[in-house]
Nucleic acid binder design. Structure first.
Length: 888
RNA sequence: GCGGACGUGGCGGAAUUGGUAGACGCAAGGGACUUAAAAUCCCUCGAUCUCUGAUCGUACGGGUUCGAUUCCCGUCGUCCGCACCA
């Protein structure tokens, strides 16, 4: 088809059609879907199930454009799977507990509950505008009494199964706000809100015993085939398994009744390179040693007050203090080593004590050099000369041969590891072996206590006589009181006049309610299970949970790669132990989508100027250089890099700005075009306008041809122009389906553009009455395919087109069309022909031609003969149906 | 410091995982229609040259191969995660 005829055909349209008006159409179709309850999932539907879920939002006030990208992806999958005949569950809810509601309460004198539910109402309306195929009958918020009631039931079940413990732990304490702070909330050693110097405090808190599952959580990562490798790796690192040896070193002289020092090491092979021991400031031995050593007590105090922030740790100098205590080397009674208290040893990893081997660890080497301790090289790279090999200021951590290590000399380090383990396991100290093999994990138990109001109350009661007593299940829920005051910092539950006073359920005496509430990560660790039967009296309906779970496709941000996903994996295991579900892994497929980013604008300097919103800026393009000007003042603004949309940088675009003008379909289409879904997408006005242009183009194409195609029976063709139309439609139908299955939305969209391009001329021919019956029938079939292909991404436009084509049902309830396999392969193929690996031309030949025929035809090509200069080719490589390479 | 990912036109990105590099879109330029504009439609669009064709070209340098954006080694750069973990 030449360009010339194309221009002729599209010169004039026989019927001028009106522009598609999304503002009128979109609400109309949303009502039509609602009326037919198309998106409500039935737990008794016998068809195969498909559960697609996007991470539910925190009700901050407004839906962000990033949310809409996330939910659009899920919606495309949901609509596609529905069309493929699955019983689809696609629910939505609200992660509604948390600090911002309390901050709003303090700043604006609004009750956290009112603030939260108002936000939910506003955001629900915003979501509805997007035309998402959600089952709103299952909606809940985690702050609903109904939900946290069940969470309290779960908590009690976990307590009963021994999955919960209470222990003392160090926390960041903000003395002004009188609250515990997460590490992320401590900035330069100060509370992020109050600015007060943060203290380390010991508090007794509730913990979930996630560390009991460390090995299982690590091992099971291997089975999560549909998870991104990156996320699995991040979780594996977070769990942080290491294999080592627990060594009990005898003390040279007992200290306050202690006879040994337990040390954990992953390098027992370097035991002859040891030159000192280092223990944490909080180590029991350190505490005992201070009794007659005020200078040591002072040092320990200093270490404790050192910041724990990342920045403080990074820059902190390695410091130690010799306690005067000495230990005896396990292999040499005459060899004793000093014990230091050191600021770089952590009490909560391993045993809180290490042996320092300066030649094999950079930190130990720095320490040894600072305090004049011996440095004995014990591992030497293979082939090095032992006489000249020495360690000065760079430790050697690689593989090699053991030296200076008596009976270990000449071994490889891993042999030496085994040898040391074997010998020390046989020796005894006290009544125990001197060493034991031990696996250590970085993962700690999950502390869930929060000294806050807006969270799920922990259903426990403290009684002076009975100790900690669970609230009887019949007394649940423990409701949050509504009459609270935020006029002072601290936990309002703690100072409520009556709430905390209860009778002990066991002995009936006056007792005290637990006033801590649960970490909000608890709320989000099981909501996906609750969605399967949100009306159930128990936390789950095990039958429904069994049928729906696991979530087939979970979609959300990479920022939840570790905590939320790890906690949910733990929770599912805990819920299995307590009989609420019967599986271990909640999410079969995981997808982490990229952010929506936008360039930034600043007037008055690139580093300290005033930020401008995109709507306050006029862009100019001159001589290939883009420049930005503030509309109000005309002042030139600096165009900054692409950044995540944030209020502070004002580079935000609200979903309404697009839906009000262009409609939801444009926003949906644009956000999935171009950029692969796992990568960031740049929001540009041109891109949005381009997406809208395509919507209008589809509408024009379909509506213009609709009249002439009315009543035409769809029929695919194999030959001629009609065959070309059918082949294009079926090929693209096939690949769009495959792309959506792989969540490659950008590629699916590119294919749909191709189909629209391929159909433009034939559809205009049909519209002008220039198409014969075969072409008309093929066009009718192809345009129906097109409408079904756009439906997952642009569902409203698809309905409008379908109606125009005479459809009496809704595309949303229609099945996905099947492609004809015979139309997606061509009888004749074009084989690229290379000479010496460079393409020189093409060969058109029957698809099923055998290798001999292909070779003969290739050698007959004139450009091949020319290249061969009459000689026989050295080799002809034929990759069937791919390529031919002639080696001259 | 440890671990990982990535690097393709002016831009976002394709390329069936070793087989035609640049699909599709955006931007740009030229043209048609129009009194004009918008809208729409058509054409061009990696670089260079001796321009109806050829050479080069997927961050850079090497290697394996008939053939490399894809695999291997090294260099440079960007991004991400963890971080005093013994």
């Amino acid at each position: 088809m030449s360009g010339g005829s194309r221009m002729l055909l599209s010169e004039k349209h026989p019927m001028a059609t009106e522009r598609y008006n999304p503002r009128a159409s979109e609400p109309k179709w949303q009502k039509a879907w609602d009326a037919r309850k198309l998106f409500e999932a039935d737990n008794d539907d016998p068809r195969p199930k498909y559960y697609v879920l996007e991470m539910f939002p925190y009700p901050s006030g407004r839906i962000h454009i990033g949310h809409t990208r996330n939910y659009t992806m899920g919606d495309v999958v949901a609509r596609y799977k529905r069309a493929k005949g699955f019983n689809v569950l696609h629910p939505m809810g609200w992660d509604a507990f948390g600090m911002p509601a309390e901050n709003a309460a303090m700043q604006n004198k609004v009750h956290p509950k009112d603030w939260t539910y108002q936000n939910i109402a506003a955001m629900r309306e915003q979501l509805k505008v997007m035309g998402l195929s959600l089952d709103w009958t299952r909606e809940f918020a985690t702050c609903d009494v109904d939900y946290y009631h069940r969470q309290q039931m779960l908590f009690l079940d976990f307590v009963e199964k021994g999955l919960v413990t209470r222990k003392s732990s160090k926390v960041n304490w903000d003395p002004e706000d009188m609250t515990v702070l997460a590490n992320e909330q401590v900035i330069d050693g100060r509370g992020w809100r109050s600015g007060a110097l943060v203290e380390q405090r010991e508090l007794t808190q509730w913990f979930f015993k996630i560390s009991d599952y460390a090995q299982d959580l690590l091992d099971s990562l291997d089975q999560l085939d549909d998870w991104p490798e990156k996320v699995k790796l991040m979780q594996a690192n977070w769990i942080g398994r290491s294999e080592g040896l627990l060594i009990r070193w005898p003390l040279a002289k007992p200290v306050a009744g202690e006879h040994e020092l337990e040390v954990y090491t992953t390098r027992p092979d370097t035991i002859f390179g040891a030159s000192f021991m280092a223990i944490a400031a909080d180590h029991p031995l350190a505490k005992k040693a201070t009794e007659d050593n005020p200078a040591l007590a002072k040092f320990i105090d200093e270490v404790r007050h050192m910041g724990t922030s990342v920045a403080a740790l990074e820059t902190a100098e390695k410091k130690g203090f010799d306690t005067g205590i000495r230990v005896v080397h396990p292999f040499d009674e005459k060899w004793t080593l000093p014990v230091y208290v050191a600021n770089f040893v952590l009490m909560d990893y391993g045993t809180g004590a290490i042996f320092g081997c300066p030649s094999g660890d950079q930190r130990d080497l720095d320490f040894a050099n600072k305090y004049g301790l011996p440095v004995i090289p014990v591992v030497m790279p293979e082939g090095e000369n032992q006489g000249s090999f020495q360690i000065i200021d760079e430790a050697y951590v690689g593989d090699g041969v053991m030296i200076n290590s008596r009976f270990l000399d000449g071994m490889k380090p891993d042999q030496a590891f085994d040898e040391v383990a074997k010998l020390l396991e046989q020796k005894t100290i006290g009544n125990r072996p001197m060493a034991e093999r031990k696996v250590n994990f970085r993962l700690r138990d999950w502390g869930i206590s929060r000294q806050r109001y807006w969270g799920c109350p922990i259903p426990m009661i403290h009684c002076e006589d009975c100790g900690v007593v669970p609230v009887p299940k019949a007394d649940l829920p423990v409701r949050l009181p509504d009459d609270i005051e935020f006029d002072r910092p601290g936990n309002p539950l703690d100072r409520h006049p009556t709430w905390r006073h209860v009778k002990c359920p066991r002995c009936g005496k006056d007792a005290r309610r637990e006033t801590d509430t649960m970490d909000t990560f608890v709320d989000s660790s099981w909501y996906f299970a609750r969605f399967t039967a949100p009306w159930a009296n128990d936390p789950t309906d095990p039958k429904a949970a069994t049928e729906w779970l696991p979530v087939d496709q979970y979609i959300g941000g990479i920022e939840h790669a570790i905590l939320h996903l790890l906690y949910s994996r733990f929770f599912t295991r805990a819920m299995r132990e307590t009989g609420h579900v019967d599986l271990a892994e909640p999410f079969r497929g995981l997808f982490t989508q990229g952010m929506v980013v936008h360039e930034t604008y600043r007037v008055g300097g690139a580093s300290n100027g005033r930020w401008l919103a995109p709507s306050e800026v006029r862009l100019e393009d001159a001589d290939g250089k883009r420049r930005a000007f503030e509309i109000a003042t005309g002042e030139e603004a600096v165009i900054g890099p692409l950044e995540k949309m944030s209020k502070s940088k004002k580079n935000t675009v609200s979903p309404e700005e697009i839906t009000d003008g262009y409609g939801a379909d444009t926003a949906r289409w644009f956000m999935l075009s171009d950029s692969p879904p796992e990568r960031d997408v740049e929001w540009t006005d041109e891109g949005a306008a381009g997406a809208h242009r395509f919507i209008q183009r589809i509408w024009r194409l379909v509506s213009t041809a609709a009249e002439s195609l009315a009543g035409v029976r769809p029929e695919k063709a194999k030959d001629g122009e009609a065959g070309t139309v059918s082949k294009a439609a079926h090929k693209i139908l096939k690949s769009v389906g495959e792309d959506i299955e792989k969540l490659a939305f950008n590629r699916a969209i590119a294919r749909i553009y191709e189909l629209a391009n391929a159909l433009t001329v034939p559809l205009n021919e049909a519209a002008e009455g220039k198409a014969g019956p075969a072409l008309q029938a093929a066009c009718r079939e192809a345009v129906e395919i097109l409408v079904h292909l756009i439906a997952p991404v642009m569902p409203h436009l698809a309905e409008e087109c379908w109606q125009t084509l005479g459809g009496t049902d809704l595309v949303a309830e229609r099945p996905w069309p099947d492609y004809d396999p015979s139309l997606v392969v061509d009888a004749e193929i074009v084989l690229p022909v290379q000479v010496n690996g460079k393409k020189r031309g093409d060969l058109t030949i029957a698809r099923d031609a055998d290798q001999g025929a292909v070779e003969k035809a290739v050698l007959a090509l004139d450009f091949v003969q020319k290249a061969l200069e009459g000689k026989a080719p050295r080799k002809v490589i034929i990759v069937p149906q791919r390529i031919v390479n002639v080696v001259a």
